[in-house]
Design a protein around this nucleic acid. Sequence first.
DNA 1: GCTCACCGTGCAATCGATTGCAGGAAAGGT
DNA 2: ACCTTTCCTGCAATCGATTGCACGGTGAGC
Lengths: 349, 349
Amino acid sequence: MDLTHPEGGERVTLRDVAVRAGVHVSTASRVLRRRDRGTESRGRLSDTAERVRRIADELGYRPDPYAASLRTQRTDTFGVLVPALTDLVLATIYDAIEETAKERGYDTFVANTRDDLEEQRRRVDLLLDRRVDGLILGDARLDSTFVDELAARDVPFVLTSRRHGAHPSVTCDDELGGRLAAQHLLALGHRRVAVVAGEPYASTGQDRTRGFLDVCRESGVRVPASRVLHSRFDVAGGRAAAERLLAVRTPPTAVFAVNDFAAIGVMGALRDYGMRVGEDVAVVGYNDVPIARELPVPLSTVRSPLREMGEQAVAALCARLDGQDIGVVRLAPEMIRRASSVPVRRDQG
Amino acid sequence: MDLTHPEGGERVTLRDVAVRAGVHVSTASRVLRRRDRGTESRGRLSDTAERVRRIADELGYRPDPYAASLRTQRTDTFGVLVPALTDLVLATIYDAIEETAKERGYDTFVANTRDDLEEQRRRVDLLLDRRVDGLILGDARLDSTFVDELAARDVPFVLTSRRHGAHPSVTCDDELGGRLAAQHLLALGHRRVAVVAGEPYASTGQDRTRGFLDVCRESGVRVPASRVLHSRFDVAGGRAAAERLLAVRTPPTAVFAVNDFAAIGVMGALRDYGMRVGEDVAVVGYNDVPIARELPVPLSTVRSPLREMGEQAVAALCARLDGQDIGVVRLAPEMIRRASSVPVRRDQG
DNA sequence: GCTCACCGTGCAATCGATTGCAGGAAAGGT
DNA sequence: ACCTTTCCTGCAATCGATTGCACGGTGAGC
């Protein structure tokens, strides 16, 4: 067996490379470290450097990132917190975060917090134990001072998906998104409208709902509190809210759900009540996830730039680590009209 | 300011605790390390131990996991590879993996490989650089020898979602699942059936398709090759395949898609061709993701125990690290009947 | 009262890298 | 030809923990 190139056995360390190349380990470190910097173009390599690199390649040397961080006090990793990866919205944002971070030389650690305050604290502590260089939080809650505490502790972080006060964040302009939805439904002639508003502690639901209601008010359309219901952001949540909305004498002719999955739940409830989506009740969602357009009744929705949010969140965190000051970034939403929302019928009055 | 308890400043190290407690750092290490073992019950603590613990708590000491792994050569972390976290099926499995791993004292690193062979190699190397104690692969490809190579390198791993030869794996019994789908559709009287078969390199799609076709053959129902189409596992993939299936003189009366999202894509295509799901063409999916039952036409599907797969995959990997031999585990699927598949009509014959 | 075992503690090496400092060689300037 | 600058390299300390070894004290056993 070829003991000089251990495959499944012991790892090749910098020392192995150095010994083999007949140089000191510090020399080997410098040579290999420079390579990473990419400043290759500046002049030819010395013989030694050439040799060290060749041997490192031959031996399949891979530096131990932990040993390096121990010394440098940097880990080149980010921690990412999400309420749940099974939520396609957050999964998409995380996907973009991971990809962008990698391009910039960072690895990421994700953690699910199930929107639980205790879990949020625990997971952040675990991530900080792992010496992450910064955090991206996708689960900020308006009813918690946790992000304020983080800021006070000087932990570098950026919020995404949900914003929180003046803390650095990259989100969709949800208030505008809510306004677009309202303008759309009102333009179709709907006057008896309802909102499936999401969790009260999430800025997403709150802002979308506020924008929506603001436009209604400005247009003189009254929306009683009984037609604005909080809900979970998933299918079951939308369904539960819709069941309450429909169990009245004059149900709404249009429902704005602040999340596509909740909107799908609303559609399910409508079906069970014998009502046709679009024809009997208009439904508008939020985010424009890929299935929205393929549903048996394609879902009208407000598109939010999910991947862009992830990308910019990483950019913002990097900028922050560079000492720059990033503020609150809001990306533009776009109204997508589909078959689930059509003009109100006369008899729906 | 209270310099004895640095909040945002330098970290508290074991040395700080030791000095403060008036003991050697090794003593502090031993005391705190024993706590983790949980063998607390065995007798009262010595004064020293008591003091060290108290001080560690007061100072908010948190051990540096990297420094520890450097010495112990264990990281208590697993690496997890998935084709994409934006696929709810894999996200759900990962969610269970993460939770189970944490219960057993392991942190996890996830990586997306987009089902790309190059990326798969790269990401595994990065995970191994990070000294993960083991890998869980959710993206094994039948057209690649990568897992064979990993096995040859003695890297501890377990496959999930997709199996590969005799390598340790925890999957759904997909062949049985395919059989269930076929039995269901044939029992409804369908004879002109089609399969949206997923990617050819995934055991999931392959096994489900094989099971389905086996039952058809055993029942004397011929399924021409033109009605078995490969596809991506997402909505767009199902839609593309369905468009080809429907662009013929006598389209099938039933379609089995090996994935719920692909099934939703099929439903979208049917709608655009003016056909009604369930009434004109039966559709059966696979996995029973939560939206399946809330779709305007609820989707019949083969339920696979996704969370259980994740849990057992972790258990299997732990067992393997304990030196035990785990074989190929297949969990039972279940047929869920809903409105998207109804008895064939006379005129469809 | 003596011996042996055991427990608690300290010492120092170690894991695998990075980096400030210093010495020597080569290159460049006058 | 001499001095200065620059570059390359080696030495050794360091990051924050863990752990084998040795030593001293205490308690048990006879």
